[in-house]
């Protein structure tokens, strides 16, 4: 699989480390049910067939975390953006 890093260009997947679902948001530790939320956050994963936004780390390249939109059935990558930009956007959205 080839992943187009927004900074480095297209590279083989062996340069990247995989983390997983990028839709997960670190829960508020002060919430009354924080423990249950963290348990979900750390352990529970969906396994969708189709497009999934997921986190990859360009470990052998620019050290950027990326949000890669990948079809889990075909490995087709339809979008990549720096995770930092996505995270800032998420924060702005509240």
């Amino acid at each position: 699989m080839r992943i187009p890093c927004p900074s480095c260009g297209e590279r083989g997947h062996e340069e990247f480390a995989y983390l997983g679902d990028a839709s997960l948001v670190r829960p508020d530790p002060t919430a009354p049910d924080a423990e249950a939320r963290f348990a979900d956050y750390v352990y529970l994963r969906d396994n969708p067939a189709g497009a999934l936004r997921e986190l990859w780390y360009h470990a052998a390249g620019c050290h950027a975390w990326l949000v890669v939109t990948r079809d889990t059935r075909t490995h087709e990558i339809s979008g990549v953006e720096p995770a930092k930009a996505a995270a800032l956007r998420r924060q702005e959205a509240g």
Binding site: C8, G9, R11, E15, A60, G61, C62
Partner: peptide
């Protein structure tokens, strides 16, 4: 380019 050669960064 930042990459690796023979597993060496």
């Amino acid at each position: 380019a930042i990459t690796q050669i023979a597993h060496i960064g």
